[in-house]
Design a protein around this nucleic acid. Structure first.
Lengths: 261, 261
DNA sequence: TACTTTGTTCCGCATTGCGGAATATAGTTC
DNA sequence: GAACTATATTCCGCAATGCGGAACAAAGTA
């Protein structure tokens, strides 16, 4: 193995290495990639060839990978999809939020997403786009950083002091030298949320994308923090419109989704 | 998987048991279930308590499970969602099909789904419902049987002789004593598809649901067989309408999605 | 306080997975 | 067709890794 400093993690009698490695193989597939060879998997995971071979063999037998008949390359199997849909099914908030979000997106011709924090990321649980024909909601399951997005900042600002400290630690590790700068920016965003109730990210995460974000009050603490954003192209939305029109509407959407607030 | 030629499964030096067990734990979560205790997981997977404990520990560390802070129960983690979205992202056919399907659903006020065969099931890759406010597309990732659904029958009927034989073996194992009956029904459906180009299931899979299905010509052989269905409530669609209106429109939708046919 | 239920940790054992090397398979080049 | 390259699979001895019963903890019940 690459680096086991003998101390630290190697002590962990409870950690099942083989399982972790198998999942490492699965997560080596990036969205949009169709099929990967054993060799590529070995490179990406840093595992020896023979080990990868055994893991892909096992995963294929279980339906989590499927092997392209002629190229012999592996693609993610449909069993993985079943797991993913089980996750989505377990968040009943989606059932409530989705129709309201759809109405919102149509009414304001803007995209709106529901996200949940995972470490120093926001994971999208649901997305509604304004134009029906633009891209399938790829974005369910995708991650955006807590620090540089409107939705992330809104979420961060709603964390309890203790949760925030944990998130800070995560991000300090993630951003390294840049962390002080990032933190300053985050603190500034937090102040804005405290004052106005929403956060902004105007072109900071993606050039030419204007976004505002709000947090949903978490129904039960420790259940994970939910948040919303609304985002549109800069040519259609200026900062003023976002602040005076979109942000208040988004706050109202949040109240609709979680009435007890 | 089911039967290895010589000595059962225990001989398999390549199969990584620990990985399989870990995934067994993940797949013990059924859609809609929020959180499971270690005990329940042990029951469902048939694994000893201590083993489950180690596996949940590992999965939690990796983000594939998350532990509810107060109950201590486990829920599927957001890392699983990332895997699922990677699967969806790898099927570019969705990007093509989704907008067309949406138009279709709106125009005919009927639900339409895109599915792919996995063994003796069809897995939904995309679903568009007519009424915007009815239920989030839960159905992406969910499974319906090949044998009793319109979409399944359409898919079955488009299989090559060799693929069909493999599917037959799968289903023979699945249906046991009932297989001859099921097979007769399937053969009948296949004849209909050969003649008219589409399959039917009128109330057979779900009471009061009328459905027709068509197969998409698979772009490359061995890439998996894709298929479409259109389904609506029996009070709104009678058999005649399904045959004379919906089925032809669905065939046209299929041609739109895969022009080379 | 005793009792029941569920989760975690311990620890010796041998099974299981490891990974380098050898072997198979496929695709190129001359 | 032979020689070569690149990649996947299989072998096999070794020991690390995961196993699981049993002891231990924790939390809820009577």
């Amino acid at each position: 193995m690459s680096f086991t400093p003998q101390e630290d993690e190697s002590k962990d009698r409870l950690f099942v290495e083989a399982l972790a490695r198998g999942l490492r193989v699965l997560s080596a597939f990036r969205p949009g990639e169709s099929a990967l060879s054993n060799q590529v998997l070995a490179q990406r995971t840093g595992l020896p060839k023979s080990t990868v071979s055994r893991l892909t063999y096992t995963l294929t037998k279980l339906g989590y990978l499927s092997q392209d008949t002629d190229s012999g390359y592996y693609r993610l199997g449909l069993a993985v999809l079943a797991l993913g849909s089980a996750v989505l099914g377990s968040y009943d908030i989606r059932r409530v939020a989705a129709p309201l979000m759809r109405d919102f997106a149509l009414k304001h011709t803007i995209s709106v997403s529901l996200g949940m924090r995972d470490g120093s990321d926001i994971v999208y649980l649901e997305t509604c786009r304004s134009q029906a024909r633009v891209s399938v909601q790829l974005s369910v399951g995708s991650r955006v950083p807590l620090a540089s997005t409107a939705i992330g900042r809104a979420c961060y600002s709603s964390l309890s002091a203790t949760e925030r400290e944990l998130a800070d630690i995560d991000m300090a590790a993630r951003y390294g030298k840049d962390w002080p700068l990032v933190q300053a920016k985050l603190e500034q965003a937090r102040q804005q949320v405290l004052q106005r109730g929403y956060s902004e990210s105007f072109g900071e995460f993606e050039r030419d994308v204007m976004a505002v974000g709000v947090a949903l009050p978490s129904p039960a603490p420790g259940q994970g923090s939910l948040c919303l954003n609304a985002s549109g192209p800069a040519f259609a939305f200026d900062a003023d419109t976002m602040r005076s029109q979109v942000a208040p509407a988004l706050l109202q959407l949040a109240r609709q989704i979680v009435p007890g607030a």
